[in-house]
Amino acid sequence: MKKTRTETNQTIQRVIEISRQQFTEKGYANVALEEIVNEAQLTRGVIYHHFSNKKGLFLAVFEEVQKDIGKQIEIEAMKSDDLWEQLLNGCRAFLVSASETQNQRILLIDGPAVLGWDTFRKMDQEYAMNSLKEHLQLLLEEGIISPVSSIDALTHCLSGAMNEAALWIAESSNRPKTIQESMDTLQTLLNGYRM
C-alpha cells in the first residue's frame, strides 16, 4: 500500500529524531545504521531510499540541528527592539544552543569531521552566517557600527570566534561561567565597532 505524503514526512521525521538521539549519545562513528533501522521499525531500504546512506542521514540530522539553533537565535534576538541588543542576544543564544549536549557533538565535533569542511561551511553559512551578515549590514546602514573594510570578513571572524567559543563552552565544567566569559569577550570585541 502506497503511503501518503504526510505519512512519508512523518516517517522521515521519526528517522531523523531517532538518528539525532543516537548520534548525540554515541557519536557518528559509533552508530550502526542497523540500530536506527531497528528502533524505527523500518527496513534498510527505506533509509537508503530517503537518505542514500548513513552520511546522508547525518546531513539531514545536522541540518535539523542548524535549523533548531537558528530558531533559538531568532527568538532570543527578537526579545529586544534595539538592533545592538539583538546582536548580543543572538550571539549569546548561539553560544548557549550550540554548546548544549543535544547539539554540540553533532554540530561542532562530528559535523566538520563527517561532512567535510566544504559542506560544513556551506551549511554554517546558510543557517547562521547569512543571518549574522544581514544583521551586521543593517547595523552598518543604521550607523550603529563604524564603517568596516569588509562585512564578509567581520562575519567570518565573528562566526569563527563563536564556533570556537562554543567548543570551549561545551568542554567546560561550569557552562554558565564560561558562557558569560565568552560573551564578555565577544561584547568587548564588538564594542570596538560600535559608533
Rank of each mutant, 00 (worst) to 15 (best):
N163D: 07
R121T: 13
Q102H: 10
L132H: 01
Q86S: 07
I179W: 00
V46D: 06
T178V: 08
Q86K: 12
R105T: 11
E181Q: 08
I144Y: 06
D124N: 13
K122V: 11
I144K: 07
S80E: 12
A128H: 15
W168M: 13
A165C: 09
L132D: 03
D110H: 04
S146G: 07
V148L: 02
F94N: 01
S149W: 11
D152T: 10
S173Q: 07
P147Q: 09
E141W: 13
R121W: 07
K79H: 04
G143A: 11
I169N: 03
A98V: 00
A77T: 05
L83W: 02
S159V: 14
A153C: 15
D152G: 06
V46M: 12
S182L: 04
D81L: 09
S150F: 11
S99Y: 04
V61S: 01
N163I: 14
T101M: 15
P176R: 02
I179N: 01
A165L: 11
Y127Q: 12
G143E: 06
I47F: 03
E134H: 08
P112L: 02
A113P: 12
A77I: 08
I144H: 03
T119E: 12
L167A: 03
T101K: 14
L186V: 03
H135T: 10
I145F: 09
L87Y: 01
L132V: 03
P147T: 14
D184C: 11
D184E: 14
R121S: 15
T178G: 02
E134M: 13
S173L: 01
V61A: 07
I106A: 04
K79N: 07
A60S: 04
G70C: 05
A113H: 15
E100R: 09
G70H: 01
I75N: 00
L139N: 11
T185V: 05
D82I: 13
E171H: 09
F58K: 03
L167C: 06
Q104L: 05
L115F: 07
D82M: 04
K71Q: 12
T185S: 03
S150D: 11
K122H: 15
